[in-house]
Computed example of a mutant assay.
Amino acid sequence: MSPAMRLPSALSLVLAIIAGSAMGPLPAAAAVRSVELSGPRPFGVFIGDVIRHEVTITADPGLRMVAASLPRPGPLTYWLDLRGIDLEDLGTGGGVRRHRLHLEYQSFYAPLETLALEIPAFTLTLQDGDERAEATVPAWRFLTSSLREIRPQRDETGTYLRPDAAPRSVPLTGWLVATGGSGGSALLLAGLIARHRGWWPFRTRARRPFARAVRELRHSLRNRADERTFRTALQTLHRAFDATAKRRLLSEDLPIFFDAAPTFRPLQGDIERFFAASRQAFFRSDDAAAVRLLPPEALLVLAGRLAAAERAAG
């Protein structure tokens, strides 16, 4: 080639260098700096063992892990399961961003002799806007060991397997005594509460007439609320007063009743109103006036308060 023909080519090269210098350096694409895999010892792994890996990925500050690229827990091969995966963002520092990946595998391979196996590699995707970068986690080779010999020597009995260990007896005497004591205490407390409240089988005790009257009034007044039922309810509560006083109790006898049973004195006003309503119903035949003076609901409330005072008196 003549010198005249080489001149344009050289001039073009010089012009291209000058133009590139004027435009400045092209921006570098986002990249993964390093991938570091840390695992346990790569030998002496038996069937059922759990293998934990820790992968540290160092990349440009803007790159973040794409969650969809992470491997999903589950069977990876017929002998290897990925039991769990956890991603930790370590943040930025020193001009880079670090991600840490915690992986938990479990091996189900049962070799007859020591054998080399490999946890397969996989690729992760990191993204910064429209830019993407890939990080490849390398494969990890390890040695798995057998649980028994290929040709085990039999013992005197002609069998290789050892018998199951006999279960250790656990003394139950203390637990049985504690359980019996707790059950007996619970029954005793339940009996004391039933006696105090007048429940079955203490329901028919004569010295708890107001407790018995409350049960009868709840049954009668909630089913019917006519005048005849109201009179019967008044009579029921009268019988409770008579049983408590051990005599027929009239309104004129109330001062003597309160002196003999002071536990009912805080209810004196309500008791006097009851006797006044009873007088309207039985002596004046004015049931409407009796109901206005002491409605069925108030009568039931009074009976409950009398039963509570009766329980407090013991």
Rank of each mutant, 00 (worst) to 15 (best):
M1Q: 15
P3T: 11
P8I: 02
P8T: 03
G24Y: 09
P25N: 08
S38W: 01
G39V: 06
P71R: 00
D81Y: 05
L82Y: 04
R83F: 12
G84C: 08
E88A: 06
G93Y: 08
G95N: 02
L101S: 01
L101P: 01
H102V: 14
Y109L: 06
T114V: 15
I119F: 14
T125P: 01
D130I: 05
T136F: 11
V137S: 00
A139V: 03
L147Q: 14
E149V: 07
I150C: 06
D155V: 08
E156R: 12
L161Y: 12
P167D: 03
W175M: 12
G180Y: 10
G184Q: 03
S185L: 15
A186P: 04
L192F: 10
P201H: 14
F202G: 07
F202P: 10
R207F: 15
R208P: 09
F210A: 03
A213S: 12
V214A: 06
S220Q: 13
R228W: 13
A233M: 07
Q235N: 11
T244W: 01
D253R: 15
D253L: 09
P255E: 08
L267G: 00
D270R: 13
I271P: 01
A276L: 02
A277L: 01
Q280I: 01
D286P: 06
A288L: 07
P295I: 04
L299N: 00
R305H: 04
A307T: 02
